[in-house]
Every structure is written in C-alpha cells, then in structure tokens.
Design a binder for these strands. Structure first.
Lengths: 207, 207
DNA sequence: TGACAAAATCAACAGTGTTGATTATATTGC
DNA sequence: GCAATATAATCAACACTGTTGATTTTGTCA
C-alpha cells in the first residue's frame, strides 16, 4: 500500500471515528451534548484536531445527515420487490416509520434539526431527498396505474402521506407522543397500529 | 393604587417585556440568537436582572409555549359555532394549520423545540395539550355520531389527523417544504390546498 | 435624614465554536 | 544516519453562552 493511499485511508478512518463519537454522544446524552470538545475527548484528541477533518461542526452534522439518507434509502429499496403496488406502498410507509423509530437521532438530524437544513440551503443542490421522494412518487404512481386513488394527484397524495408519516415520527421523537397514549389496549406496536389505521383509510380510498 | 399592587403590576410588565424581546429575537434572528444577554440588551437591563423575573432560560421558553397554546385554543374555539360537524372538523384542521403557518415561531416552541417539552417532563401535569386535543376528539366524535368515519376509532383518527397537520406544519417550518414545491400550478395557498386534499380523502372516508 | 427593603448590577465560573501560531511527528533526499 | 521538509497535532486565545453569590444602587417609610 502506497503512502498517499495509507494517508487517505487514515483520513477516512479518522473522519469515521469523529462521526461515530458524535452519534454516540447524541444517542447517549442528547443533541446539546454533542460538542466539539466532547467529541475530541471521546476520541482522545485535542478539539483543534477535529478541524483538520471537518470544516466546522455543522459539516459533521451534515455528513451524519447524508449517512442517514443512505440508510433510509437502503431500507426503502429492500421492499421494492413486493409485487402488489398497494402492498408495496404500505410497506414503503412501514419502512419509513420503522427507520424513524429505530434511528430517532438520525431522523432528527435528517428532518428536524436546523443544522443540516442550513448547510443545504447555502450549499449546492443535493440529490438525497429527491431520490427518496422519487421512490415514493413512483410507488404511488404505480398504485394509480393499477386503479387506486382515483381523483387524486401523485404529488398531492405523496405530500399528504409523507406529511402523515413525518408527523407521527416527529411527535414521537420530539414530544414522546405515540398512539398508544390514546389507545393503549389495542396498541402493541406503534408502527403496526399506525399503519393499520392508514390501511383502513387507504382501503376506503381505493378504486 | 397601593404599593404592593403597583409592584405586582410592574413585575407583570417586566415579565411581558422580557417575553416580547425573546419572541422578537426569535422571529428576527432565529432561535439560536435568543440568548439571555441579547434579551437583556434589547430591554436595556443587565443579564442578571432577567433572573429576578424568570428562574432560567427554559422558563421563558415555557411561558411562550403556554401563551402559544392560549392563542391556538382561542383560534380553535372561534370555529366551534359551525353547525355541520364535518365542515367544523375541516375548519378545525384549517385553523390549526393557519395558526402554525402564521405563527411559525410559536408553533416551533410549542411542538418542536425540546426546551418546553423538557420543562413539561419534569414539572407537574399541564392541561393545555389535553384541552386542545379534547376539542379535536369532540369534533371527530360528533362527526361519527352523524354517521361519518365508520370503522375507525375516535382516538385513532384523531392521532392520524393531528399527525398529518403536524407533519405539514413541521416540514414547512423546519425544512421549508410546502406542497407548492411539488404542485405549483394549482397551489395558490398551502392551507387551502392541503385541506382540499384532506377534504377529498375525508369525502371518500365518509359514510 | 436614617433605616430598611427591594431592584439592579457586577464579576466570575464553566462551558461553547473557532482559529492563528506553535510544537511534535513522520517521511524524504542525501 | 542525519538534516530538510511536509504533515499532524496541540496550544492559547477570542468572543460567545447560561448562571450565580456578592455588591451596589434605588426607592419607601418612619
């Protein structure tokens, strides 16, 4: 292995250990505890060293935001093999909610915290969201081609369904509010129960 | 006016000016600019003086959270006179979204930012949310009594509808994402258009 | 005017993101 | 192996942040 190659590899590994430390801190102590100094302490380097690998703190958050989108897209692709379009769309929603509830801190960074959004606003165009959103629109379109959701537009329904899933996720993550709170006896699992209600709604919307 | 009475009045006025300054800073420069020192500068007092009127910074945020809930409840009560239950429920949703989009910073404090939620978690029970949520459940229940939404529960539908409105509001406030982005030609107004889609969904759910 | 209470300020602590200057380390050419 | 160089890491400081115990100013009443 050549020198520049090893240097490259060490750089990547250092960046990864910084990202891991940041994510660990977020999970263990909440976002306000994710400080450059605490990350440095965790990886046993001086705070200044972090700046040799990331431009600033928001760049670390933005990188975590990108990693989160890769994880989400992977999960969403895994259900694309389901043949029936309506079942596929429901599984799409289930995958989205599962991701949010299993990775609440990633979801927070991706969709709630302002850091990554601010970075996106001032940086160049970024394809991550469009890719994930495109998949949702594709699944909705194929439902419509199969005769479901007549009278609605792809864009309109995509927005409404995404908003609903995002609302459920956000109320859970930021306010600790879950459906179980209002309907304990039937709710063994938030994801399944929310999707059951959505399924009822969608079945009435069918044809 | 007696001495203690005037003292009381001055205390209330000082608290209000602190709250106003905090809200102004939030609206003008974003939440990260709401600092005790900047509030103090704005009202031309020393930072320490703030602590004579509020226990800590989160108490200021919590007070704004409470004021926001009063404003929201007022708005929601104003549409309770609509006689038809389905029209009333739709107006309820419209009022909620309008509040969120017209008072994005209040909405942020009430439903997204962690400060007030954390205060709620450690403090005694607080009736604000239950009151607003109770009104939604009441309107849904009256729709069901009129024959709408058969096969769904009040709690389930309330959760789904709230989540959807909350999702729309949060995507807008935190990510600048609005329906218009995906469907410009028909969208002159986010509230009306979102509600139109919801109306279509609900009409298919009727009976 | 003097005594007392209330209101406001001060100075400091520990924490934050960030950076220009400095030191330590590792690799290269000889 | 040693000096020169390039890279990596650290240091010390700046301007912020929330918060608080001690101190000073202000206002009221006898």
């Amino acid at each position: 292995m050549g020198l520049t190659e090893r240097r490259q590899k060490e750089k990547v590994e250092m960046r990864q250990s910084i990202l891991d430390a940041a994510m660990d801190l977020f999970s263990a102590e909440g976002f306000e505890s994710v400080s450059i100094r605490k990350i440095a302490e965790k990886i046993e380097y001086h705070p200044s060293t972090i700046y040799l690998y990331f431009e600033d703190k928001d760049s670390i958050i933005f990188e975590l935001h990108n990693i989160g989108f890769l994880k989400l897209f992977d999960k969403q692709m895994s259900i694309q093999t389901i043949p029936d379009p309506l079942e596929r769309l429901l599984a799409h929603g289930r995958a989205y909610l599962e991701f949010a509830l299993e990775n609440p801190h990633f979801y927070d960074i991706m969709f709630i915290l302002p850091n990554a959004a601010e970075k996106l606003r001032i940086c160049a165009k970024w394809e991550g969201k469009d890719r994930a959103y495109g998949l949702l629109e594709k699944n909705i379109r194929e439902c419509m081609e199969a005769g479901y959701f007549t009278g609605l537009t792809v864009e309109g329904l995509a927005f409404v369904l995404w908003s609903m899933m995002h609302g459920i996720a956000t109320l859970h993550i930021r306010r600790g509010i879950v459906l179980e709170e209002f309907y304990r006896e039937q709710a063994n699992n938030l994801v399944e129960y929310s999707l059951d209600i959505l399924r009822t709604v969608i079945q009435k919307l069918m044809k």
